[in-house]
């Protein structure tokens, strides 16, 4: 999970009003270099909660982001590099995101945050997903058999 995702996530527990930012508990942080894209960084800058990014990157062991930032800094290569590194290259691989209001822990396992709520935490939560197995959805429903040939011939 990149810190851009942390910057986009809030606690989704029913009744929570101050669910952002989620507190990071970092057990394992990895760095994965990616190509810098100044245009993307400029587009995203206004959408990022800067303080949340600074605090998160510090918990992840990266302390080079300035406390304050403004759009004029996007013209500086050095700033862009730091912003890029914090936003996209630091990954929370193992740990948790903690609701700031309730202390409820959302685990992050193998880089994937689990925001699923328990029955008593949700207002109205039911599924949307893709389970199944190589058959059209309608067929899965009607026959519930696996026909790999059908699936492959589709390709």
């Amino acid at each position: 999970m990149r810190l851009i995702t942390h910057n986009m996530l809030s606690s989704n527990i029913k009744g929570v009003t101050n669910g952002f930012p989620l507190r990071i508990e970092a057990e394992k942080v990895v760095e994965k270099p990616v190509e810098i894209d100044p245009k993307f960084l400029k587009n995203m800058f206004v959408k990022i909660d800067w303080k949340a990014l600074v605090d998160a990157s510090r918990i992840m062991g990266y302390a080079d982001l300035p406390d304050e930032a403004n759009p004029s800094m996007l013209e500086l290569d050095e700033f862009l590099q730091k912003f890029h590194h914090a936003l996209l290259e630091l990954h929370l691989e193992e740990g948790a995101l903690v609701c700031p209001q309730t202390d409820r822990r959302f685990p992050v396992i193998k880089g994937i945050p689990n925001m699923l709520l328990h029955e008593d935490e949700l207002f109205l939560q039911r599924g949307v997903s893709h389970g199944g197995g190589g058959t059209p959805k309608t067929q899965s429903r009607t026959f519930k058999y696996l026909d790999l040939n059908t699936s492959l011939s589709c390709a």
């Binding site: 952002f20 909660d49 997903s129």
Partner: peptide, 27 residues
Amino acid sequence: ELINTNIASGLDSRLKGLIDVMVVNPP
């Protein structure tokens, strides 16, 4: 970036008005 969640639960407040392309193959 992958998130294990129901539809967009947890993303709805911070991502409001930010998605340029959304694709959905729903149940």
